[in-house]
């Protein structure tokens, strides 16, 4: 009985999603929507299969831009977040600067970078980096400075040195908030890559969507959109997996798994 229940729970999402696709499929016929406005999911799947070598190559290109930008953002933002959290000077200078810059839609820089650096990989990686960098650094700062007063005092009263206190208390305590930044950035990384491709590129899924739309082929555009969704989902899934492994004790993980 219990196993059936678990199976049912695991199946809930795929079933619901399949239901949505089915509703889409059926309503196109029901309301006589022409394929050049909105194609059926089955048509999208067929067109995608026909053009799969190119779609696959472009998925790989957009994926590379996304993952590279995201990885560089983590590598730069995490140490910087730490430095800001532990340096009063940086907190008074760099931190307010970052908060001000955060107000700018990062995409606004895309045309400039492309005019400087051309149509290649680098400007896209930079845009993705910019999109991901801010949520990661700001959440890291928030995580590292927000140790409870009780734990701060407790740690001080043990006489532990900075490093020992950091690795045993501060770092693990900050991880849930750090992961908020990781997850938010993972959700937005492919947005940066796609828009950068819209603005100036000759390959990638963003480029593909523009060409397909220009050729009145929304079926192909939707195929690319699904691949983008898949790309974003795998990124988010990987980060969520890392979160579950690294901080299984966090309240968010406990609630999702239905414990407590």
């Amino acid at each position: 009985m219990r196993r059936v229940n678990q199976l049912g729970r695991a199946a809930a999402f795929p079933l619901f999603f399949a239901g949505l696709l089915l509703a889409w499929e059926v309503s196109i016929g029901l309301f006589h929507v022409p394929a050049y406005i909105l194609p059926r999911p089955s048509e999208i799947a067929l067109s995608a299969r026909a053009d799969y070598p190119l779609l696959l190559r472009y998925t790989f290109i957009t994926g590379t831009e996304t993952v590279l930008g995201y990885a560089v953002a983590i590598v730069v933002a995490l140490p910087l977040g730490l430095a800001i959290a532990f340096s009063g000077l940086l907190r008074r200078t760099v931190y307010p600067t970052l908060v001000s810059l955060e107000m700018i839609p990062k995409i606004a820089f895309a045309p400039i970078f492309i005019s400087w650096l051309g149509f290649g990989l680098l400007p896209k990686v930079i845009i993705v980096f910019l999109v991901c960098f801010f949520p990661i650094v700001l959440n890291a700062v928030a995580g590292f400075v927000s140790l409870s007063e009780e734990l701060t005092r407790f740690t001080r009263a043990t006489g532990a040195g900075t490093w020992r206190a950091f690795f045993k208390v501060r770092l693990p305590a900050a991880l849930p908030q750090v992961f908020v930044g990781f997850k938010y950035a993972a959700m937005n990384a492919s947005v940066g890559a796609t828009i950068a491709e819209f603005i100036g590129s000759d390959q990638g899924l963003g480029f593909y969507i523009q060409i397909a739309t220009g050729n009145m082929r929304p079926d192909l555009a939707f195929a690319a959109i699904f691949l983008l969704a898949l790309l974003g989902l795998s990124m988010f899934g990987l980060v969520t997996l890392a979160e579950r492994v690294l901080i299984p004790w966090d309240i968010s993980q406990r609630r999702i798994r239905g414990k407590n």
């Binding site: 009780e150 734990l151 407790f154 693990p172 901080i247 966090d250």
Partner: peptide, 13 residues
Amino acid sequence: VGIMFQDNTLVPW
């Protein structure tokens, strides 16, 4: 010293 507060200092991990 050993200190204990109203909100305890047990860490969840």
